[in-house]
Amino acid sequence: MSATLAAFRDRLAYQGVSLGIVALLATTALVVGNQMTREAIVQAEAADLANLLAQVLPDGTADNDLLTDIVKVGAGETAVTVHRARKAGVPTAAVFRMAERGYAADIVVLMGVAADGRLLGVRIVKHAETPGLGDKIEIAKAKWVLDFDGKSLGEPPAEKWAVKKDGGVFDQFAGATITPRAVVKAVKRGLEFFSAHREEILS
């Protein structure tokens, strides 16, 4: 380090200006980074969503673009965005999210419901449950969510829409009851939401 630089570094103006330059460079880097990645991130997230939507709908349920065929049901913050699957223009199924408080935070469930009210598939989109216990709701870790396939509001009857511990038909996990209970509740609420707004969704 040269002596002149050392003398400069102790000046107040140098410190202020150098801090400013670093902040400016950092901001520039962030702006450039954001610009360069924005497009790719939007694409990756759209691909993710399309991938998820495809998971809760069996092959051949839809021939339209679910990402654009959406309807908002309800008003304000509780509005639910429903993706509609159509085949030759006729609505065949609806896909939407439901959230329910789990053990740690809200569990967000994505569910596909056929026009007749039958469940086509359920996936967990977001959760913060205990790793190794509550996270068995993820399809990557256990097959538990597949239990919902084919169920509807009448099958099993309403009082059986619960985990086995509460007298229902769905398994709970050893050491974790709150998590599956929340998922079952969310799916049941989703089905009720679907039957209440069926006309609006499938119009």
């Binding site: 570094r9 670093v22 950092a26 962030l30 980074g33 954001n34 990645t37």
Partner: peptide, 26 residues
């Protein structure tokens, strides 16, 4: 300069992590 090194390092590290986050995400 030693007097402003901490804020400089903090800004540097935060920027770096954010860029890594963006690049990985994209």
């Amino acid at each position: 300069s030693p007097q402003v090194r901490i804020p400089v390092f903090v800004v540097l590290i935060a920027t770096l992590v954010t860029l890594v986050d963006l690049v990985l995400n994209a």
